[in-house]
Nucleic acid binder design. Structure first.
Lengths: 141, 141
DNA sequence: TCCCATAATAGACTTGTTCTAAATATATAA
DNA sequence: TTATATATTTAGAACAAGTCTATTATGGGA
């Protein structure tokens, strides 16, 4: 818990109970959760927490580089506390998001002369091992 | 025009006026438009066209692989009629989306054994040449 | 302890997209 | 042709994700 508080203080974020709990959830649940998943979970811990607080907190975390925002596919914003370089794979059957390693430095690129590239995202989609071997099912992995 | 009709018929899509006009727009305006941009434009050609028709048509095109859906960054779905392999760069200043070439075959990947990969998207963000050389401006490129 | 700034809350609001039911258009079979 | 079935379009309601606003709560420093 202390570690979490320090993580926030180091980034000049006041460690309110709400923020610490959300950070704790992100660290312990590396499932690239949506804001709503976080909100649902928080209701168990702090029943009075509002959705706006979840969004405020996530936006604060984003602005200091504590989490990254993923937008794979449709209408879902997902939050990832793993800030190392990696790609994301989303299963089209069960919806889970998995990390994979990728080194874009190896890649031949063309057409980006004079562009200033600041962020690189790689999103793959398809079927995870579990859904690949169980075609037809579309429940939770 | 005939070519457009054939393009649709070849994919077993009935070539209604609305569909042909939307296809024509996508082919002639390779700006990765949003549904709303398409809708705005269509109002000039077919003033009675409803937004639902724009979405219906785009979803039909998506389902037969005539366009691809891009979701770079936030709340904007964009449609791309260029189905060749390429990456997308979005300028964080002016919002335009640019294509670039990339060959993911060259890339070292790890952690995707047993995954069935069907779609690969590469999204870069940063500043386009114009905005890079005009820091501060955030209007149209 | 009292202030002041910051943060949290509830709910209204906005935006993008889908859904629904009715009207219209098109294709097919008699 | 005409009748009938099917597909498409339309307008607006419904929905969902996220933001905004006004109010209340919190917590650190004089």
């Amino acid at each position: 818990m202390d570690k979490l508080v320090q993580e926030l203080v180091a980034r000049k974020i006041r460690p309110s109970i709400q923020r610490v709990k959300i950070l704790e959830y992100l660290i312990n649940n590396r499932i690239h959760p949506t804001a709503d998943q976080i909100f649902q979970h928080m209701q168990k811990e702090i029943p009075t927490m509002s959705k706006a607080t979840v969004y405020n907190t996530l936006n604060t975390f984003l602005s200091v580089g504590l989490v990254r925002l993923l937008t794979i596919g449709g209408s879902e914003a997902r939050y990832d506390i793993n800030m190392t370089t990696h790609g994301h794979f989303k299963c089209e059957s069960c919806g889970t998001v998995h990390d994979f390693t990728i080194d874009l430095e190896d890649c031949e690129l063309g057409g980006l002369d004079d562009f200033t590239v600041e962020k690189r995202d790689v999103h793959f989609r398809g079927y995870c091992p579990r859904c690949s071997s169980n075609p037809g099912r579309s429940s939770k992995c």
